[in-house]
Amino acid sequence: MPAPAIRVDAVRRHYVLEDFTELVALHDVDLTVPAGRFVSVIGPSGCGKSTLLRIMAGLEEPDAGTVTLGGVSPTEAAADKRIGLVPQAPALLPWLSVLDNVRLPRRVNRGANKADLPDPVALLERAGLGDALHQLPHQLSGGMQQRAAIVRAFALHPEVLLMDEPFSALDELTRESLQEQLLDLWSQLTATVVFVTHSVSEAVRLSDQVVVMAPKPGRVVETVDIDLPRPRTADLIRSPEFHDHEIVLRELLRWSYEQGAAR
């Protein structure tokens, strides 16, 4: 059993509101992700899943509790370039070509680059962006832009990949093709992945484990193992086992949704 890549221990995060009361965004969240695992975090809006991800990325500090990535704090992990972040929007710089967008995170904080960084051109070609290397982001469809954003993260060869609803703005078929692409890149460049989503089928398709969160206050309510074999082929997705997992998760999600509605 390898050491956990991510350990979240009793993390709390409170936001002070306009009227000086506090919103409990995260209440005593514990989470352990073994190295190389793909974990999805699912829950209704307001459950704190994005806040949790931002804390893991070192973009926010918890008010209590600790987070470690590979044994160090998120800030130290960021300084060491061990984190790859894929936000909800592609966040490509509109004046840089696709290739330069993928290269820029490697050009900044250069000293922390790993010795064996993958070739960005090869990665982009593998992701189906071989013809778009020198195009500007606005010349690409939304799906291709998000693909470039994923490659930008993988090009750092990060130990931890943090993804915040990266496919939520895409149509069904684009979404499926990007899920495939993600799994393909992940199988080549292994990383520990935390993937925030609100789609049940996406969580089942991608993950080894799904963490269900509930709002008011934001907390973890259940962790479900997805013991389906990989690769997750089209046949597997149509199988009854796949559907069973979806049903279990959908029930949990409905329960946590009612938690938010009831209060």
Partner: peptide, 12 residues
């Protein structure tokens, strides 16, 4: 989100 990406790689 752009800031988040470049902060996550500790750009100066």
């Amino acid at each position: 989100e752009v800031l988040a990406v470049y902060r996550s790689v500790h750009a100066s």
